[in-house]
Amino acid sequence: MAFNSWQEIIWMDGYGFYVWLSFGVSILAVGLLVVHGLLTRKTLARMAVQEQQRQQRLARRKQQERSRSKSTNDSTS
C-alpha cells in the first residue's frame, strides 16, 4: 500500500482531483456504454413483440382472404 490513510488516498499528494476525475469519468463512460447496450436489447425485445403481432395480422388476413375466395368460388360453381 502506497498510502497510510483515507485522507492520503483522497488527497493523492495534491493530485487527487485529477486522478479521481479521470478514473470517475472513465468508469462512467464505459458504464454508460454497457447500459446503452442492455437498453438496446430491451428495445429489440419490444420490437420483436411488434414483429410478432405484424406476422399474426398478416397470417390472419391471408386466412380471411382464402376463406373469402373459397366462398366466392363456391357461389359461382
Binding site: 500500500m1 502506497a2 498510502f3 493523492m12 499528494d13 495534491g14 493530485y15 487527487g16 486522478v19
Partner: peptide, 16 residues
Amino acid sequence: LFYAPPDYQQGDSYRI
C-alpha cells in the same frame, strides 16, 4: 491506484 509506488517525478498524478 493504491499499491503501486508513486513516480519519482510525477508523484501520484501518474496513476492516470
